[in-house]
C-alpha cells in the first residue's frame, strides 16, 4: 500500500535527486563490501599464492583459482599419517554436515526461547501493574552491561552437578540468559508504543491479558520480533565461547560450526587459509535467514492497524 503511494508522490524533481542518492549509496556499499569481496577471492586461491601476492592481483595474473579450500572444509580435512613402513597416507577428518546440523539444533531453540520469554516480559512491564515493576525493569536493563565472561565459571559448576553440561537444554538456557536483557529491552521499546486504544478495545471485548498478548500483541510485533530474531540468530550461530564452555563436555559429537572451523586450522594455526572458505560456508545460513526475514521489517510496521 504505502509502496504504491510513495511511487505516485514522486515528482520530476525527485527523479534527478534519485541519481545522486543511488550514486552515494553505491559508493558506500562498495566500500563496505570490499573487505568481504577480498576474502571471497582469497578463498579460491591456493595457499602459496595467498601469502605471495595481494588478492586483487589474482584477477590479473595467472596464479589461477582452486576449490581446494572449500573441498577441505566441506569434505573434511586431509590428515597426513605416517605409518611404520614410512608410507604416507592421508585420512579425511570430520566433515561439516554434522557440525551444521548441530549448530541448527543449538541455534533455532536458542533464538525462539528468549524471544518468547522476552516478549511476555516486555508486555508485562509495558502494560501490567505489579509490585516492584520499576526496579525490576531497571535491573533487567542494567544487566545488559554484565559481561557474560563472569557467568561462565559459576554456571558451568552448577551444570556439572546437574548433569546439564553437554546437553542442548543447558546451552539453550545459557544463550537465553545472555540474550534476554537485549531482547526484553528492544521488545519493550516496541510493545510499549503500541497504541493504548488497541489494547483497550480488546479488553472491552472481554479478552484476557494472555489472549490479548497471543492474538493481538504478538502479530503486531512481528517486525520487532523478526529484527531481534536475526540478531540473536547471528549471535548464537557465530558464538564460540559459550559453545566451547558448555558443549565441550560432550566431545566431537556436539561440535558446532565455529568450533569445528577452529579445529580445522590445526593446532599450530598452520592451515588458517581454510578459514577464508570456512567463513563463507558458515555465512550461508545466517544470510538466508536475513533475506527470509527481511520482508517482515521492510514492510511498514503498523500500517493499517490504527488511524493516526
Amino acid at each position: 500500500m504505502s509502496e504504491i503511494k510513495k511511487r505516485k508522490s514522486l515528482n520530476p524533481e525527485g527523479q534527478s535527486s534519485g541519481i545522486v542518492v543511488n550514486a552515494v549509496l553505491l559508493f558506500l556499499v562498495i566500500i563496505w563490501t570490499i573487505p568481504t569481496f577480498g576474502i571471497l577471492v582469497t578463498s579460491f586461491r591456493a595457499k602459496d599464492n595467498v601469502f605471495a601476492t595481494g588478492w586483487w592481483q589474482a584477477l590479473s595474473d595467472d596464479s589461477g583459482f582452486t576449490l581446494e579450500n572449500y573441498g577441505q572444509v566441506l569434505a573434511g580435512r586431509d590428515y597426513k599419517l605416517k605409518s611404520d613402513s614410512n608410507n604416507n597416507s592421508s585420512v579425511k577428518g570430520d566433515n561439516m554436515a554434522g557440525a551444521f546440523l548441530n549448530s541448527i539444533s543449538v541455534t533455532v531453540p536458542a533464538v525462539v526461547i528468549p524471544i518468547l520469554i522476552a516478549a511476555f516480559a516486555a508486555y508485562g512491564f509495558a502494560w501490567l501493574d505489579f509490585p516492584g515493576r520499576k526496579p525490576l525493569f531497571i535491573l533487567i536493563v542494567a544487566l545488559l552491561v554484565v559481561p557474560l565472561q563472569i557467568s561462565l565459571i559459576p554456571v558451568l559448576r552448577d551444570y556439572q552437578k546437574l548433569k546439564l553440561n553437554g546437553t542442548y537444554l543447558g546451552i539453550w538456557l545459557a544463550h537465553t540468559g545472555f540474550g534476554l536483557p537485549l531482547a526484553t529491552y528492544l521488545l519493550f521499546n516496541y510493545i510499549s508504543t503500541i497504541p493504548r486504544s488497541i489494547l483497550e478495545s480488546a479488553f472491552i471485548d472481554g479478552a484476557s491479558h494472555f489472549t490479548t498478548f497471543i492474538r493481538l500483541i504478538l502479530p503486531l510485533s512481528v517486525p520487532a520480533l523478526a529484527s531481534f530474531a536475526i540478531f540473536q540468530f547471528l549471535w548464537v550461530w557465530n558464538d564460540m565461547l559459550v559453545a566451547l564452555v558448555f558443549l565441550s563436555g560432550a566431545g566431537a559429537k556436539m561440535q558446532v560450526v565455529t568450533v569445528r572451523l577452529l579445529n580445522l586450522i590445526g593446532s599450530r594455526g598452520q592451515d588458517w587459509q581454510l578459514l577464508t572458505s570456512g567463513a563463507f560456508i558458515s555465512m550461508i545460513l545466517p544470510l538466508t535467514v536475513f533475506l527470509a526475514l527481511q520482508k517482515f521489517f521492510i514492510r511498514g510496521l503498523m500500517a493499517g492497524s490504527v488511524k493516526e
Partner: peptide, 10 residues
C-alpha cells in the same frame, strides 16, 4: 548487513 553474518573468526 553482510558483515554481521560473518563469524568473528572470519
Amino acid at each position: 548487513f553482510l558483515p554481521m553474518a560473518i563469524s568473528f573468526v572470519g
